[in-house]
Amino acid sequence: MSGNGNAAATAEENSPKMRVIRVGTRKSQLARIQTDSVVATLKASYPGLQFEIIAMSTTGDKILDTALSKIGEKSLFTKELEHALEKNEVDLVVHSLKDLPTVLPPGFTIGAICKRENPHDAVVFHPKFVGKTLETLPEKSVVGTSSLRRAAQLQRKFPHLEFRSIRGNLNTRLRKLDEQQEFSAIILATAGLQRMGWHNRVGQILHPEECMYAVGQGALGVEVRAKDQDILDLVGVLHDPETLLRCIAERAFLRHLEGGCSVPVAVHTAMKDGQLYLTGGVWSLDGSDSIQETMQATIHVPAQHEDGPEDDPQLVGITARNIPRGPQLAAQNLGISLANLLLSKGAKNILDVARQLNDAH
């Protein structure tokens, strides 16, 4: 009898209710805020589980004197976190989706994509230029951005401005803007500013005609071990179906173009009346040469937790077992079709030249 009692006690200790789920994140304040929001949602869904947040620095956090596009290494903000995932030191990792490459290392998958916040870019102005827009900034004003995508589009749109690289986390960039006289304004992701509670610093939100956004911008991705079915089931509740389908289309477009950090590629997606609209573009580094096109596809946005595919093969690095396969494939095909259209119009040449120029500098 006593033996059975011990077995029952052991089973209770090993039951999922007692389990601590370890969540990996970057150390920056924004990353911690984003991770806290994901953990809060998981806690609400699984009140019996405990969650421990483990923060670590990544290569991208450490190399702050070089433009991201020049470092010449993929997975700048993800490699150390993936290493911890691989060694079973954490069970899942919360990322900004735009930091996750469209091809993940073997053994990993994006197990959830959370509801997207505003994906557009924002302009934050130096205190002396508050009330201005990019259009009304004085001639030769210097605007800071760490992104080739932003610089290429904005140089084309605002030729009277000069664009220079600015690195560091959000706090560091804002301090550089406010305390030094080098920059009249800087460009940042609206979602990051909003998550930090800095709505009052948003001086201008850039519309798609001015600057399309990065693939996955404004959404959070939760990376897990691809074979860890328990954790895949656990994080599945975080999937937002519309965000998922938009981001599958965007990531398929980028992957098929073979774009990345070192080339200016941008997108804009919208879901309306059962249609998914995808606009994508590529630019030369100075913005003088560009190709942009829009395509659409009829896609039914499923309700969360309709029964999805059981075999769960990944699409552009994403596993969404609780979302039907048909809409996911339709979104992926839309991204591939748009990429093929741009490639047929000469996108590869623009991107190759951009890559060579970026590598040469």
Rank of each mutant, 00 (worst) to 15 (best):
I21C: 05
Q29C: 14
L30R: 01
A31K: 01
Q34P: 01
V38W: 01
L42E: 03
L42A: 06
L42R: 01
Q50S: 01
I53R: 08
A55S: 12
L68M: 14
L68V: 12
S69C: 13
S69L: 09
E73W: 04
E73S: 11
E73I: 07
K74A: 10
L76I: 06
F77P: 01
K79A: 10
E80R: 09
E80L: 06
L85R: 01
E86N: 06
K87F: 08
V94G: 04
D99P: 05
L100V: 08
P101G: 05
L104S: 10
L104N: 03
T109F: 04
I113H: 01
P119W: 10
D121K: 01
F125H: 04
P127Y: 01
P127N: 01
P127C: 03
K128F: 07
K128G: 06
K128Y: 09
G131D: 10
L134H: 01
L134I: 09
P138I: 09
S141H: 11
V142W: 09
R149M: 01
Q153V: 06
L161C: 12
L161E: 01
R164D: 12
N169F: 05
R173M: 01
L174A: 06
L177E: 01
E182G: 15
S184C: 15
I187G: 06
L188E: 01
L193W: 01
W198Y: 11
W198H: 11
H199P: 15
N200Y: 08
R201G: 08
I205K: 14
P208E: 01
E209S: 05
E210I: 15
Y213T: 01
A214I: 04
G216P: 01
G218D: 01
G221F: 03
V222R: 01
I231K: 05
L232R: 04
D233G: 07
L238V: 07
H239L: 05
T243G: 11
R246P: 05
C247F: 06
C247I: 01
E250D: 15
A252T: 14
E258V: 15
E258F: 06
C261W: 08
V263M: 06
V265N: 01
G280S: 04
S284P: 01
G287Y: 06
S290H: 01
Q292P: 07
T294Y: 01
Q296P: 07
T298R: 13
T298W: 12
A303D: 15
H305E: 15
E306V: 14
E306D: 07
D307R: 05
G308P: 05
P309V: 15
D312L: 06
V316N: 01
G317E: 01
G317M: 15
N322P: 09
N322F: 14
P324V: 09
A330S: 08
G335Y: 01
L338K: 06
L338T: 09
N340T: 10
S344W: 01
K348L: 14
K348W: 13
N349K: 13
D359Y: 13
A360G: 14
